[in-house]
Simulated assay, not measured.
Amino acid sequence: MQVRRPSMTSPVLIIIPAYNEEATILHTVQTIETYTPYDYIVINDGSTDRTLSILKEHQKPHISLPVNLGIGGAMQTGYQYAHRQGYEYAMQLDADGQHNPADIEHLLQSIQKSEYDMVIGSRFLEKTSYKGSIIRRAGILYFYYLLKWIAKIEVYDPTSGYRIVNKQVIALFAKDYPVDYPEVEVLVTLSRKKFRIKEIKTEMKDRQGGESSITHAKGLYYMIKVTFFSVIRSFL
């Protein structure tokens, strides 16, 4: 495991879950290094391509999991590290180059200057350049109404992987986090526990390389599973 030493000037840890992202991971972390002063950690989620080799070759901060745990397992690993190191905020950022690093500061300022516990970078709160497929947008709309029904909250981009949380939520997520496809489920949990959630506009590009791990078949499984466990979590 290679990590940056925690810095007194960096209250933020950027967590980058990565599974088979050899085409984009180096550019993603180099962009973060160029545009932000904050610490980051790549969670290599049992990749079978050259992701780990690239991280080692370029001496980038990372934790390497021996097997693929899924996005939830990778993110919980990152939250556990953030909790142990005492970071004030933890931010999730995708490894595929879709997230604009210019929005990192916007997300941080939004949570620092408010009483919110999570701030989500949204593609749909206001009009952005992001399009997305009809199927993907339909799925996002489905989860918007699911959350409105079971959690009584309105989140226009509930599957966004661009989000930041404070120290209290870091501690919660370090102990309890869904195994895979966690984005919607954790919103139900936070709402149930009276944490405050906010969305702000962020830009999102198309995947800059590689392929998404979510196929149409997995997408259907994703919707069924997340619906089932979100309903259960709403009663916990």
Rank of each mutant, 00 (worst) to 15 (best):
M75N: 10
Q76A: 03
Y79N: 02
Q80P: 02
Q80I: 15
Q80Y: 08
A82K: 03
H83G: 01
H83Q: 13
R84K: 12
Q85W: 02
G86A: 07
Y89K: 07
Y89Q: 01
Q92C: 10
Q92K: 12
Q92G: 12
D96K: 09
H99R: 12
A102Q: 13
I104K: 03
I104F: 06
L107G: 10
S110C: 09
S110N: 10
I111R: 03
K113N: 14
K113Y: 09
S114V: 10
S114C: 06
S114W: 05
Y116M: 11
Y116A: 11
Y116V: 04
M118I: 15
I120H: 09
I120M: 07
I120W: 06
S122T: 08
R123T: 15
F124W: 12
L125H: 05
E126M: 03
K127P: 04
T128F: 00
S133V: 07
I134Y: 11
I135L: 12
I135K: 08
A138V: 08
A138F: 00
L141K: 13
L141R: 13
F143A: 06
Y144W: 06
L146F: 08
K148A: 07
K148H: 14
W149V: 11
A151C: 13
K152F: 04
E154L: 05
V155E: 13
Y162T: 10
Y162C: 04
R163K: 15
V165K: 06
K167D: 12
Q168R: 14
Q168H: 13
V169S: 01
I170R: 01
A171D: 11
L172D: 10
D176G: 03
E183T: 10
E183K: 00
V184R: 01
V186Q: 13
V186C: 07
L187W: 09
L187H: 10
S191T: 11
S191A: 15
R192E: 07
R192W: 02
K194E: 06
I197H: 06
